[in-house]
């Protein structure tokens, strides 16, 4: 009994202490992964804040963006041009979604909008593969997948670039949506469509803006994940990892998406390396979900979410 407790509560921390450089590497790996999760979670948060819709298609938007980018580059287009066109495609997609899916469903129950995004999910998946084919594609962004050492700690160039990009993007968006009047308008739209309209907030514009931003965030996420593991269908499953991040951080909070992502990223890497051997490994795949479950029990609105108020 005491042995088991020792192995669970003391052993892992002793291991961390005995090899600080390795510990730092694991932690950095966790931060990198966490920032990537934040990036995907951010797409969810923006759309949820603005329309109260949980966008089931966010993961496929990441895949679609990456597929489009790679497809254009394979046809010999320079990277910059391909990026610009992909951005244009994602904005066009936002316009179409607003016109065809959201506008006819104004003031419908949230579950109906949610179902609509499931439809969108399957459409984009099929459409993307129809356009660009379904085989795994390599995405080369020109950053070598090699490592360098800082104070005895190995750091991967590609991961570092991805993490910094994600961090910068997330900070800019967080500040923009927290501090500007668009942020206030977003919260208003999420809360009550009619009231928002009556105080002069153009619903359609707001929706196009957030879906466009979510699309652009999807491009960045698609590039980062695609460069690491190739552009393929499994990219859209990254979105599933964003779910526990959202539950942790709160569905309505941009900073929450960042903090939630970091906690999940670091938690699963540390858990895998130091606690994984105790139960035979592979903690990484379910750790995040267990953490989310615990949060649902004790703090369903997440760390930064708005308190859920229900008058009976």
């Amino acid at each position: 009994m005491t042995e088991a407790l020792y192995a669970l509560l003391v052993g892992p921390f002793k291991d961390m202490g005995s090899s600080p450089a390795f510990f730092a590497e694991v932690l950095i790996g966790g931060i990198f992964a966490g920032l990537m999760y934040s990036l995907v979670a951010l797409g969810f948060v923006l759309i949820f804040k603005a329309s109260g819709v949980f966008n089931f298609a966010q993961g496929v938007m990441v895949l679609f963006a990456a597929l489009t980018l790679v497809g254009l580059m394979e046809r010999g287009m320079p990277v910059a041009l391909a990026l610009a066109i992909t951005a244009g495609v994602m904005i066009l997609l936002a316009l179409l979604i607003e016109r065809i899916v959201l506008r006819p469903l104004v003031n419908q129950a949230q579950i109906i909008l949610f179902m609509a995004t499931i439809g969108l999910n399957f459409f984009l998946e099929g459409f993307g593969e129809m356009l660009w084919g379904s085989n795994v594609k390599r995405l080369d962004v020109g950053i070598p997948d090699t490592s360098f050492k800082v104070a005895g700690v190995l750091i991967n160039r590609l991961e570092l670039t991805a993490a910094i990009t994600a961090a910068v993007l997330v900070s800019i968006l967080a500040i923009f949506f927290q501090r500007t009047r668009i942020g206030r308008a977003l919260r208003a739209v999420a809360d009550d469509h009619e009231a928002a309209l009556s105080i002069g907030i153009p619903l359609k514009t707001i929706w196009v803006v957030v879906w466009s931003v979510a699309g652009l965030v999807a491009i960045v996420a698609g590039i980062m994940w695609g460069a690491k593991s190739g552009v393929q269908f499994s990219l859209s499953l990254v979105a599933l990892k964003a779910l526990p991040v959202l539950i942790l951080g709160g569905f309505t909070s941009v900073p929450g998406a960042v903090v939630g992502g970091l906690i999940i990223g670091m938690g699963e890497k540390l858990g895998e390396v130091y606690w994984g051997p105790l139960v035979g490994g592979a903690i990484e795949n379910w750790f995040a979900y267990v953490l989310a479950l615990v949060f649902l029990l004790f703090r369903p609105q997440g760390l930064f979410g708005e308190r859920i108020i229900e008058r009976v």
Partner: peptide, 30 residues
């Protein structure tokens, strides 16, 4: 039709949205 999750003050502030203008950049930097 109030914004139920927002404070009374924030609710009333949303009424000013149309009166607000100027640069988003400056707003972001407050």
């Amino acid at each position: 039709a109030l914004f139920k999750g927002m404070s009374v003050l924030d609710n009333i502030m949303t009424g000013r949205l149309l009166k607000m203008n100027g640069s988003f950049l400056l707003e972001a930097l407050y």
